Simulated scan of single mutants.
Amino acid sequence: MEDLRFDRRIGLRMGLATGVAAALFVAAIAPARADDEAAPPGFVSLFNGKDLAGWKVPEGDNGHWKVVDGAIDYDAMSEAPGDKSLWLDREFVDFELRLDWRIKEAPYINRGIPYILPDGTHAKDVHGRELKLALPDADSGVYLRGSGNHQVNIWCWPIGSGEMYGIRTNPATPPALRAAVTPRHQADRPIGEWNRFEIRVKCNTVTTILNGVLVVPTVAIPDLPPRGRLALQHHGLKRNGEWAGPPSLLQYKNIYIKILNEK
């Protein structure tokens, strides 16, 4: 089982109660298998594998969010004039979410990927300039409680999926919180392979597991909304037939939720 201790380089410590809760949460999770279509005990399905019933397709999307071979499929080309993300119809308070996802391809070369340190800051060279990496990239995420600023990211960055970018990069975020929402491990599988998120949201805390690895131990988010809908994020834009940013060329399936509290 994954070592639940914090990376000593970061210098953060979990309280005993939080550590025990995180350990129990990890222990309850079966090994990640994208082909397991049965809802775990206590969970209900949010996707029927056939259509987008229960989800709000962006108005004017024109078929870019669709179902292909039992998975929600997105080509990052929604024609909706406003928000292009795919939202669930209902709101949630406290829950455990299990979701399988895969990046189909990453045709865009992102030349501005930062070298992220364990404390969530960006590494710099001897002249004080941020180090940048040029790598194939794709970008999406899971919005928690209706907030794009509180999303669990999916992408190709070396830091790995599971971080909370909107919190980590906010200049007002305290250093300890910035480090806490930075993944402890890079647990992503290669592009094209299925991955599994297990995300627990309780009160103002978030715990994120990727492919059985605890990447973001239980962390308190002071401004986490008390309730809201879940969403799968749109990202990407084409100009003159070429991607101008990392697109969300993803598929999702086996989406299950366990309600912990509805009020």
Score class of each variant (00 low, 15 high):
residue 2 E to V: 10
residue 4 L to N: 08
residue 10 I to M: 11
residue 12 L to T: 07
residue 15 G to L: 10
residue 17 A to G: 08
residue 19 G to M: 08
residue 19 G to N: 12
residue 21 A to M: 06
residue 21 A to D: 05
residue 23 A to Q: 04
residue 24 L to T: 08
residue 24 L to I: 09
residue 25 F to S: 07
residue 28 A to W: 10
residue 30 A to F: 09
residue 31 P to A: 11
residue 33 R to I: 07
residue 33 R to E: 11
residue 34 A to F: 04
residue 35 D to Q: 04
residue 43 F to N: 03
residue 45 S to Q: 02
residue 48 N to M: 02
residue 53 A to L: 05
residue 55 W to Y: 01
residue 62 N to C: 13
residue 65 W to C: 13
residue 65 W to R: 13
residue 70 G to D: 00
residue 75 D to Q: 09
residue 77 M to C: 02
residue 77 M to K: 03
residue 78 S to R: 06
residue 89 D to G: 14
residue 90 R to I: 10
residue 90 R to D: 13
residue 94 D to H: 02
residue 98 R to M: 06
residue 103 I to D: 09
residue 112 G to V: 11
residue 112 G to M: 12
residue 114 P to M: 14
residue 116 I to T: 15
residue 119 D to F: 04
residue 120 G to V: 03
residue 124 K to S: 04
residue 126 V to T: 12
residue 135 L to T: 07
residue 139 D to S: 15
residue 152 V to E: 07
residue 156 C to A: 11
residue 157 W to N: 14
residue 160 G to T: 07
residue 160 G to H: 06
residue 162 G to H: 03
residue 169 T to L: 14
residue 171 P to T: 01
residue 171 P to Q: 03
residue 174 P to L: 07
residue 175 P to H: 12
residue 175 P to A: 14
residue 178 R to K: 13
residue 179 A to Y: 07
residue 182 T to W: 04
residue 183 P to G: 06
residue 184 R to Q: 13
residue 186 Q to A: 14
residue 188 D to Q: 05
residue 192 G to C: 09
residue 202 K to F: 03
residue 203 C to W: 13
residue 203 C to A: 15
residue 206 V to Y: 00
residue 209 I to D: 00
residue 210 L to G: 01
residue 212 G to W: 01
residue 212 G to Q: 04
residue 222 P to E: 08
residue 229 R to P: 06
residue 233 Q to V: 12
residue 233 Q to T: 11
residue 241 G to H: 04
residue 241 G to C: 03
residue 241 G to T: 01
residue 245 G to Y: 11
residue 248 S to H: 11
residue 249 L to T: 09
residue 255 I to V: 04
residue 259 I to S: 14
residue 261 N to S: 14
residue 261 N to R: 15
